[in-house]
Computed example of a mutant assay.
Amino acid sequence: MRALSGLERKQLLRSARQRGVVIQAEALSVLTEIYSTLFSPNFGKFVETLFEYFQEVSDGSDILTEETSHKLFASLLRMSKREAGEIESRLTLIDAFQVPVPLFNRSSKAYGIDENAKPTLLSGPEEKIGMFRKRFELLLQRTLRDERFHLPETHDFVDTKVRLTEIESLHTQSGRKTVLGFLTQLEEGTWFLEDLRSSIQISIKNAQFTPGIHTDGSIVLAQGEVVGSLFVVDTLGSPSAEKRLDSLAAISRCDLFGPALEDADRKLLAEKETEDGEAMILFLADVWLDTKQVLGGFKRLLQGFQESKIAPAVIVLMGDFSSPQLSATEQAVNLQSNFGALGNIIADYKEISEQTEFVIVPGPNDPVSHS
């Protein structure tokens, strides 16, 4: 592998001008690294592929900056791995403050991303209200996608379908109705159903409950009839679940967990999931590395996996990583050596260390969580 020669740099800049692209000087060193790492000595393919992918990462700009060149490098590296039948990792770690916020557009009946949402650590009361409203909207749309709630355009076979009724309409309609709402106690000891527009007191004394956990604040489907000012519930349960493929079809290409995977990556990941259908992800919390009992238990855990010829795909270790009796100063001093001891334990189990990915998640009292 070799770097770009002076002549090749001139040819690259000339090709950029012909395409109306300006390459900043700071980007040239990154482009040279891209060439030497992925394309050398095929300069022609490098130029052709470079400007093809530049259109995808440039956000409409015609200036190739140093930042854009790093995006190009990452994108081309993924392309190279796909061509080799590889995938970078089975894991994608997503910053909680970068997770997109979904928004349902009633006009287009499609999901999009709320561009105005700005996640913060300490949000105001209006954010909590908005959270409940969005949760209700998401479950309402999921319920309406259920075949049982698809009302036909004609009146044929209407008795085989279920019609949702808004709470504010219950008093104007007679007969047995189905309502989606929050199960709440607006008055202590008294149960209500509440949707986005109204609320009504309910009686669940003689109600039958479908399997599930129904708690204060949960969203439920309730069937019953209004008697006076009371909605007498005869059946109460959770909204039905939805298959993963149906959910993906509903949200289209709206990625709810960060940067969207390219189609080729999705296909390769699906193949990997099929090949390794028994993959295991293990979560361990309060891993106090200064405690012999915890380290001993961790050793026994890895020993058991190794003896069983099983290597988890991922082990997530979550803090706090120091026991509560240690002061902040003692934690900071001991943490590095404690992680060294953890690394030595993992290294003792060769199959685990080679096949398992480890993810470290600091706890609220770990020194690193405040940096």
Results as ranks from 00 to 15, higher is better:
Met1Arg: 14
Ala3Pro: 05
Gly6Phe: 04
Glu8Trp: 02
Lys10His: 07
Leu12Tyr: 00
Val22Asn: 04
Ser29Thr: 11
Leu31Met: 08
Ile34Phe: 06
Tyr35Lys: 08
Tyr35Asp: 05
Thr37Gln: 07
Phe39Val: 13
Val47Thr: 08
Glu48Asp: 07
Thr49Asp: 13
Leu50Cys: 09
Leu50Pro: 10
Thr65Tyr: 01
Thr68Gly: 07
Glu86Cys: 09
Thr92Glu: 12
Gln98Leu: 12
Asn116Ile: 03
Pro119Ala: 01
Gly124Ile: 04
Arg133Asn: 09
Leu140Asn: 02
Gln141Tyr: 03
Arg145Cys: 03
His150Ala: 07
His150Phe: 05
Pro152Arg: 10
Glu153Thr: 06
Asp156His: 12
Glu166Trp: 09
Leu170Ile: 14
Gln173Thr: 12
Gly175Asn: 15
Arg176Ser: 13
Thr178Ile: 06
Leu180Thr: 08
Leu180Gly: 05
Phe182Ser: 06
Phe182Val: 09
Leu183Asp: 04
Glu187Ala: 01
Glu188Ile: 13
Phe192Pro: 01
Leu193Asp: 04
Asp195Pro: 12
Leu196Met: 11
Leu196Thr: 06
Ser199Ile: 02
Ser199Arg: 10
Gln201Trp: 04
Ala207Thr: 13
Gln208Thr: 12
Pro211Thr: 02
Gly212Val: 13
Thr215Val: 15
Asp216Leu: 14
Gly217Val: 08
Ser218Phe: 07
Ile219Glu: 05
Val227Asn: 14
Gly228Pro: 04
Ser229Thr: 10
Phe231Leu: 08
Val233Glu: 04
Thr235Val: 10
Glu242Lys: 07
Leu245Gln: 10
Asp246Pro: 06
Ser252Gly: 15
Cys254Trp: 05
Leu256Asn: 04
Phe257Asn: 11
Gly258Val: 10
Leu268Cys: 05
Leu268Gly: 04
Ala270Lys: 07
Ala270Arg: 09
Glu271Trp: 07
Thr274Asn: 00
Gly277Ile: 04
Phe283Asn: 00
Trp288Ala: 10
Trp288Lys: 07
Leu295Thr: 05
Ser308Trp: 05
Lys309Cys: 05
Ala311Trp: 00
Val314Met: 01
Val314Asp: 03
Ile315Arg: 03
Asp320Val: 10
Ser322Arg: 03
Leu326His: 03
Ala328Cys: 02
Thr329Lys: 09
Gln331Val: 07
Gly340Tyr: 09
Ala341Trp: 12
Asn344Tyr: 02
Ala347Met: 14
Lys350Tyr: 14
Ile352Leu: 15
Glu354Asp: 13
Val359Trp: 04
Pro362Ser: 10
Ser371His: 15
